[in-house]
Design a protein around this nucleic acid. Sequence first.
DNA 1: GGCATGGTGCGTCAATTCCG
DNA 2: CGGAATTGACGCACCATGCC
Length: 245
Amino acid sequence: MSKCGRKKYMRTNVRQMTMETVESQHDRSVTHSVAERSSAHMQTGQISVPTLAQVATIAETDDSAESEVIDSHKRREILSRRPSYRKILNELSSDVPGIPKIEEEKSEEEGTPPNIATMAVPTSIYQTSTGQYNEETDLAPSHMAAATGDMPTYQIRAPTTALPQGVVMAASPGSLHSPQQLAEEATRKRELRLMKNREAAKECRRRKKEYVKCLESRVAVLEVQNKKLIEELETLKDICSPKTD
DNA sequence: GGCATGGTGCGTCAATTCCG
DNA sequence: CGGAATTGACGCACCATGCC
């Protein structure tokens, strides 16, 4: 799936959409894609959080006029935050040996984690994201260049320290005088924040995929285990209850 | 071929959680 | 406690597929 050519559309359109429409975004909960809905919430066993679909159902059943007004607030209240994927998975892995940990970034470059080797993620995801920096800032982080290669994506690092030098090396707030400089500083900070969050979102999605795959693999392991136990039980039953004739 | 629909990934905002 | 990190939600663009 090639998505390289659509970045320009997105960047311009999204820029128009943001800020002006963000207020109304919270009131529109129904148009979300099915995939996002289904993967939006994985029950951890610790915290029971309703899925977005469930929340949407709640909103639909209560179709009074004022419900629209308080819908976003209600939804925010219902959708209480749960621990991060990394934390959940690490806790899972401490309980179950078969579950790979989502490692910290620095440990990933030392080699492929044995269990994660089965969880290849399409590299095209990261290949498509390389162009945006050239379009926007001409300051592509070094790790993004690596992402275009043949290395598996779980080895791709997204260090927050690899920020463009021109952005990082900014004047200290104390040296600013004119309103124009302040505005420039604000703009610079905003772009820096957006860039960091962009990378964070990518990383978060990668972790989420990894998390889902880990859960799926765990299901597979448990199913096999369950099957074996049932067979064992049947065998023991046969042994313990000899035929009467 | 054109259209509708479903799936996927992206950038962004904002709320929440984490951590020094 | 404040800043950084994380992630749900949203809208968008694009692609694949099925139907007409």
